[in-house]
Amino acid sequence: MSSEPDDPEVAARMRSAHTAACGFLGAAPDTQPPGGKTREAWGWRGRTLGRPVTGAYGPGWLRIVHSPLDKAAGKLWTGPEDAEQLVPRQVPRPRLHLVRQWTEGENAYKAELYDRAVGETVSPTPAPVTAVPSLTAAWWSDLRTALACLSPVHTDRTAVRQAYLDRAMPKYLAFLDGPVPTMPRAWSTAHGDLHWANLTGPELGILDWEGWGIAPAGYDAALLHAYSIGVPETAERVRQELSILLDSEDGRFAELVVITELLQSVERGDNVELVPALRQRAKEVWCRTTADGVEVLLRKYD
């Protein structure tokens, strides 16, 4: 989740669209949801707005997505609907019941009515500023199972493109000692935005399926670790619980991929506080990757 957009006109426009969507879908704002006052969940720069609602499906969550009219198509626009059709139910997430699209001038909107998630997001922000709440062994087991179920899903959706890796990794990892590889050994299907504000507890739920698709193997685990890296205790827990994904050649390459993406995001003002830790982690991963490469070479000629 993000904070309310700085532009009051954007906030007012999205709230108005949410009210209109309630009318379209026969829902009503839930003025007394569990936990107190009505919550608003904003997406990046006001692109989305979610609120608790009630209606024929019971307690729900109504999310509004905005796009300029000429860009209301493609991967991000259809992600939740595609996930509802293709991602197995063993991957825990709120069910999507209804979708409604409409336009107002040069603006396109989509309303998505979901089941309300059980529990709360683990963190209000993708990168927690303090250690995340204690999560049970069952929660971590469920996360590993969910990622294993998602990985083999067949889709033509793409979360990370090879052309991006070829272009961005040499640029944003230029501080490493040597040419950086840009070709993963393996690809698999990923959520594509697995961070702490998209995970719920104490019962696991995975939210926001806009950007899911094919990515380098281990991508989701690497992304969760990268967003945790500013809190060493949390990062260490991720490494322990997801070691089967991270402690491998594929996992180390995936870490370099997500570090590239987060370092690039700094150019638009995001994740600035993570930069020192990301650069240090990239050096650690690079040293391990280089050492493994030398070991393989030595075994080859032994």
Rank of each mutant, 00 (worst) to 15 (best):
H225M: 05
D193P: 04
C149Q: 15
L199T: 13
W140Q: 09
P126T: 02
G105Q: 01
W102Q: 06
E40F: 14
Y164N: 12
V53R: 00
A83P: 00
R63P: 01
T158S: 13
L135E: 06
L135C: 06
Q90F: 05
A27D: 02
L207I: 05
A226F: 09
P33C: 13
W140T: 15
G178Q: 02
G201Q: 11
T130A: 15
R63F: 04
A83I: 03
V99S: 07
R167W: 13
A190T: 06
V257S: 02
D270C: 07
A83M: 01
H97Q: 01
P232L: 06
T31Q: 14
R89P: 08
H225S: 12
S141D: 15
A221N: 06
V91K: 00
D30N: 11
A73F: 15
R39L: 12
G201L: 02
A174N: 07
T121R: 06
E106I: 14
V122K: 00
P152A: 12
T260W: 08
L297D: 14
V294Q: 07
E203S: 13
L263S: 04
I214M: 13
E104G: 11
A131M: 10
V238W: 01
P5H: 08
V132H: 01
E106P: 05
P52A: 03
T136M: 04
E273S: 15
K283A: 12
P179H: 09
E255S: 14
W187Q: 10
K110P: 07
L298Q: 07
L150H: 09
V10Y: 00
E40V: 11
Y109F: 14
P80V: 07
A168T: 05
R288D: 13
P184W: 01
K300V: 13
G26P: 03
Q280L: 09
G43V: 04
W196E: 00
T182S: 13
R39M: 13
G230S: 10
V53M: 04
S188C: 07
P128T: 11
T234N: 07
T289G: 05
S141N: 15
W209I: 05
L143I: 07
H195W: 09
V258R: 00
T38P: 12
A73W: 15
Q240E: 15
G79Q: 00
R63T: 12
R237Y: 03
A11Q: 07
L25S: 02
L262F: 02
P152N: 09
T121N: 08
Q264F: 10
Y164E: 11
G230M: 10
V160N: 01
M1E: 15
A127Q: 03
L173C: 12
N198C: 10
T125D: 14
S134F: 10
L150F: 02
D250L: 05
M169I: 10
P170Q: 02
Y57G: 12
L224P: 01
W139E: 04
L135Y: 06
V153W: 01
A217Q: 06
C287W: 08
P5D: 08
K110A: 06
E236P: 06
L25M: 12
E261V: 10
P216F: 01
D292V: 09
E104V: 11
E40L: 09
W286A: 05
L207M: 02
A56E: 13
I214F: 05
A190D: 02
P179E: 15
H18V: 08
A163V: 14
Y219Q: 02
V180F: 03
P181F: 05
D302N: 12
A277N: 04
R100L: 04
V266S: 04
P5W: 02
A111E: 06
